[in-house]
């Protein structure tokens, strides 16, 4: 009796991106990709979100903000690493100011930056292959402690 995820509202957090991921994310809201027609959208508050989407290698200055945004999202919720930096394979992983990406992402969208068409298919594929109950998981509690 599983139901695919039909709507995924996303809170974006930039944690040290070069702005490339942000621009491609914005492209997804444009008419060429139009993510809204698939139930995907960027929302203004974590209180409205089902997902936290992080770009950048997670700089030390942003690490706590990332954690706070995650805490503010109600369950069920998922973590999305958008781009190579957040995925832990970007160019600035080894710098003193970087925490080396987002820990334990539920979905990783690789690319530098990810091509919007590809990102959209990955998001849709994830939604189709997960059920609304599957988003809620006992791991949520442990996930929340791993940043930073």
């Amino acid at each position: 009796m599983s139901k695919p995820v039909r709507s995924l509202q996303i809170r974006h957090v930039d944690a040290g991106s070069c702005n490339g991921c942000e621009q491609e994310l914005t492209a997804l809201t444009g008419r060429d990709y139009d993510m809204q027609r698939y139930g995907l959208d960027i929302v203004a508050s974590p209180r409205h979100a089902d997902a936290m989407l992080v770009t950048g290698p997670v700089t030390d200055t942003m690490a706590r903000s990332v954690e706070r945004v995650w805490q503010a999202i109600s369950v069920p919720k998922i973590r999305i690493a958008f781009g190579d930096c957040a995925a832990g394979c970007g160019f600035s992983q080894d710098s003193y100011a970087s925490h080396g990406g987002l820990n334990d992402p539920d979905l990783t969208i690789a690319g530098c930056p990810p091509e919007p068409g590809k990102a959209l298919s990955l998001l849709r594929a994830w939604m189709a292959s997960h059920d609304t109950h599957g988003m809620t998981s006992v791991e949520v509690e442990s996930n929340s402690k791993k940043i930073g």
Partner: peptide, 26 residues
């Protein structure tokens, strides 16, 4: 968003710099 890029570049060979410099800002 301070990533410490200037420190990261120190000690790199000339061949290693381009992929970093290209990503300072999209």
């Amino acid at each position: 968003n301070h990533r410490g890029i200037e420190a990261l570049l120190e000690g790199k060979t000339v061949g290693e710099v381009s992929p970093l410099v290209t990503r300072i800002c999209a």
